[in-house]
Amino acid sequence: MMLGIIVFFLLASLLFYVIFGGADFGAGILELIARKKDSARTQELTYRALGPVWEANHMWLILAVVILFVGFPQAYAILSTHLHIPLMIMLLGIVLRGTMFIFRHYDAVKDGSQIWYARLFAWSSFLTPLFLGMILGGTILGQIDLEANSFFEAYLAPWLNGFSIWLGLFFCLVSAFLASIFLTIESRQESEKHQLSRKAFQINVLMFGMGGIGLVGAGFFDTNINLAAGVLHHYWEGYQGWLVMGVGSLLWGATQYCLFTNKYSIARILGVGEVSVVLLGWIWLQHPAMIIFKDGTNLSLTQAAAPDATLMSLGWALIIGSVLIFPALFYLFKVFKQ
């Protein structure tokens, strides 16, 4: 029972981090790909949209990590050992983009250093989700080998592979997509809204293409040719996989339609739905496995769970916390995001 509640909070914080943190990264990626003459305007918009909420958006990551190390210590220990290197790189990205975002805005003197803040912010906004995606990839790909005896096998192979990079890039696209559908609504100029929604449309097409390549690749090749087949085959087995793909595609189509017809608020809801289905659907397909190992075995949340007394106190802490957090969060968004 308590385990269920804790898993619920873990999934919720993961989902919220992907959505809100992702939109946050995406804003930086959009700056990266914006044309020079638009970039000042994009920056202005990013700041207005993110300023008040960026710190809260990143709390979801902290929450997920805390739940992991208190409630599922074994999983935390394995991941942080074998994914040490990508975690460090991701942290570097988090440090750089958080500080550069704030420095850029709060530097009392606006001079040439602005260019550097902006550059570092934009590049680290790309680096962070790339490696976050690679870390997720490493978790599920099945290349973590607890018995490995070479440095490469133990600390590089799990995440330095085609599948993880694919997932990392996919997550960058997801981030940029979320940012553009959110910013479409924040923007106060018709022309800019139009431009952003077109961008969202294009990125969504790319996402579909990239997801499709992965799934088809997994469907046609076996694990000898394509490591990812070991993970993605779930999609081609049983009705569940078809259900996830079906609902995802439907939402995708509906999002595109709304973007095309300028129904921005509905597009935002559908787009978030689309991303949630991709993430939650996948977790549903591979559950109960969480970390997949090279020898084919896996670690499930139940196996990794801490003793009952810990789960009880963690669960209550989360319940009580959410009673305090959600109204406050609601108020924050209400004040700044009418």
Binding site: V66, V70, L318, I320, G321, I325
Partner: peptide, 13 residues
């Protein structure tokens, strides 16, 4: 983690 994690889980809030 499971033993001394309580403060961290409250700290999250």
């Amino acid at each position: 983690g499971p033993i001394f994690g309580m403060p961290f889980s409250l700290e999250g809030t």
